[in-house]
């Protein structure tokens, strides 16, 4: 089994795309059912972490800007790590993620974790 990080991204900027409190409430069940299903297969290796909207971006030469990256509308909303046999399985898992649906209409980036002894 390899470990894959599933990074959830969505639009945090466009006003019309921000979920209403009712939509937020309604989205709890699909998320919990999806995560619970992964956990029930013992595939959830790092439990869900959600990020606040607020952030800073630190660059060289003492430059600090309010973040996340202002020039990109999409930002990371959270991540998990799952155990999967290969990319195909990790992608299949990601395809069930509620971030792809209304009201988020976001996307999932699937990245394989590098093993400790894999330093090139």
């Amino acid at each position: 089994m390899d470990q894959f990080m599933l990074i959830f991204r969505r639009d945090w900027e466009t006003k019309e795309k921000q979920p209403s409190p009712e939509q937020m409430q309604a989205s709890i069940k699909p998320w919990q059912d999806w995560l619970g299903g992964l956990a029930a297969q013992n595939k959830l290796t790092v439990t869900p972490h959600r990020l606040q909207k607020e952030g800073r971006v630190v660059k060289a030469n003492q430059i600090v800007t309010d973040g996340p990256y202002a020039e990109i509308k999409e930002a990371i909303g959270g991540f998990i790590v799952v155990a999967a046999a290969d990319f195909d399985e990790a992608v299949a898992i990601a395809q069930g993620c509620p971030i792809l649906n209304n009201p988020w209409d976001g996307n999932v980036e699937v990245r394989m974790l590098m093993q400790e002894n894999e330093n090139q």
Binding site: Q32, G36, L44
Partner: peptide
């Protein structure tokens, strides 16, 4: 019951919780 099992499993896996969760599902 389903939501409580979801939370329990996200916290820690056990086969019996997984099976009970599926029954509740």
């Amino acid at each position: 019951i389903l939501q409580l099992y979801n939370q329990l499993l996200i916290r820690e896996y056990s086969p019996i919780a997984a099976l009970n969760r599926t029954y509740a599902l």
